[in-house]
């Protein structure tokens, strides 16, 4: 599957593992629930590890484990739920997280510019999206009034 990463269209190398599915090989992403339930097992996983957070899940819960994750997915249940914009900002600025932050779920291409500015590196919409058409929206504005998280 293709995603947007660092402003380019690339093949996704990660596999999201649903809570009731067996762990896959390679680089996997799990939910917070699964991480908390199967921490030891996941720490022994051969590939890279990622975690998916919903907007109401507090980053503080994984603050001590951030270095275990090469990827943090912030999932958008609906595009109007703007909590992830603050979540990403906090991950970067308060928790100094340097791994990849990815938007998943139902955000819009019209939000790409904002997503990128608050610290998201990659975007993987849950619906069928024309990424070629979407990618210019990362650069809707050439000047801004606020400091960027980057």
């Amino acid at each position: 599957m293709k995603i947007i990463k660092d402003k380019k269209i690339v093949e996704d190398t990660w596999t999201f593992v649903a809570d009731d599915a067996p762990l896959a090989d390679g680089d996997i992403v799990v939910t917070l629930d699964r991480w908390q339930a199967e921490k030891d097992r996941l720490l022994n996983h051969a590939g890279n590890l990622g975690i998916r957070l919903e907007p109401d899940q507090d980053i503080a819960e994984i603050a001590a484990d951030l270095d275990k994750f090469q990827l943090i997915e912030l999932n958008f249940p609906v595009f109007t739920d703007g909590r992830n914009f603050s979540q990403a900002r906090r991950l970067r600025k308060h928790y100094h997280y340097n791994g990849e932050i990815r938007a998943t779920g139902n955000f819009l291409r019209d939000q790409l510019f904002y997503l990128y500015r608050v610290g998201f590196d990659s975007m993987s919409p849950a619906y069928d999206e024309n990424l070629e058409e979407a990618i210019p929206r990362l650069d809707d504005f050439s000047v801004t009034y606020q400091q960027s998280t980057r």
Binding site: F79, D81, G82, F85, Q111, F113, L115, R117, Y145
Partner: peptide, 14 residues
């Protein structure tokens, strides 16, 4: 005005 215009974090408030 300048700070709030297209503030990337606060465009989708409750």
């Amino acid at each position: 005005r300048q700070w709030s215009t297209f503030h990337p974090e606060f465009a989708y408030l409750p």
